[in-house]
Write a protein that binds this DNA or RNA. Structure first.
Lengths: 128, 128
DNA sequence: CTATAAATCAGGATTAATTCCTAATTTATG
DNA sequence: CATAAATTAGGAATTAATCCTGATTTATAG
C-alpha cells in the first residue's frame, strides 16, 4: 500500500458504497463496468491488502466465496450455512474486554469488527 | 445418516479422539492408515453429514482448508488469519441469550458451539 | 433366509475460488 | 529526467471441495 493506484481507489469505492456483503467476483464485475481493463488478480490482490490494512473486512464462509464489507462501526453477522445469506444483528458485546481477554489467553491480536455466528435461516429450514 | 457404516464410525472416532482442529485431509490420512481403501469423497461426505447432525463442528478459515472438531462443551476459538493456528479461549458469553436475540432479529437458528474470532498471533506478528 | 429397496461406498473427473507468475506499465524519488 | 519501487493485466496453476457413476453394503418386508 505504498503507491497510489486508480484501480485500488475504485475497489475501495465499490465496497464502501455497497451496504451489502460482496464477493470478490461481485466487486470485480462492478469495477469492470467502469474500467473494463481491470483484472481479477488486481481485485484479489487489493482486497487482500485492504483487509490487512483494516480498511475492509473479510468474511469467510462455509458456503461459496468469501465476502467483503467496508469497516464501519462494529456490528455482528448471522450467516446461513445453507444459502450463504448474511444478516446483521445488534447485541451489546463488550468488544474491548473480549479483545483483552483473548490477547491475554492466546496472544492473538483480534481484528474482528464484530462477531459472526452461523446457523440455518428461515427459508432454508422450510425447504430442506 | 440412516445406515450404519464402518467408515463413518472410524471418522467420528478420529475426530473425537483428537483434541485439535483437524482438516478433512488430516482426517482422511488418519482413517486411511487403518482402512487403506477409504476414499476422500467418503470422508468429505461424512464430515458434511456429521456437521449437519451436530456431532462435529466445522470451522471455516480465512487461510487453508476448513477444520473440524468434536462437539463437546461450548468453547471459543481465536484463529490466526496468517498461519491458521487455532487457540481455544475462555470467556463467559451468554450463549442462550445470544441465540435468542439472533433468532428474534434474523430468524437464524444458530448452531455455533462457541464464538470464533480472528487476528494475528504472536509469531506471525514478529516475522511479517 | 431371500428379494428388493435404500444408503453408502471408491475412484476419479470436475468445478470454484483463489493464488501465483511474468513481462509491461505506472508512480515515487533524487 | 533517470532509476527504483510498486502495481498492473492476463493467464496458468493450485487447492479444496463437490459431483458423478457403477459397485457394494445395509435395512426392510415377505
Amino acid at each position: 500500500m505504498k503507491n497510489y493506484s486508480r484501480q485500488r481507489e475504485e475497489i475501495i469505492k465499490v465496497v464502501k458504497d455497497s451496504y451489502s456483503h460482496l464477493t470478490a467476483e461481485d466487486i470485480y464485475m462492478t469495477v469492470k463496468a467502469k474500467d473494463p481493463a481491470v483484472s481479477r488478480s488486481t481485485v484479489y490482490r487489493n482486497l487482500g491488502l485492504l483487509v490487512e490494512n483494516n480498511i475492509i473486512n473479510k468474511i469467510s464462509m462455509q458456503v461459496g466465496a468469501d465476502r467483503y464489507d467496508y469497516r464501519r462501526e462494529p456490528h455482528n453477522h448471522a450467516i446461513c450455512v445453507k444459502c450463504g445469506k448474511i444478516f446483521d444483528f445488534k447485541y451489546d458485546f463488550e468488544y474491548e474486554k473480549i479483545r483483552e481477554v483473548v490477547k491475554e489467553q492466546t496472544k492473538i491480536e483480534i481484528s474482528n469488527n464484530g462477531i459472526a455466528l452461523e446457523g440455518i435461516c428461515d427459508s432454508c429450514k422450510i425447504d430442506n
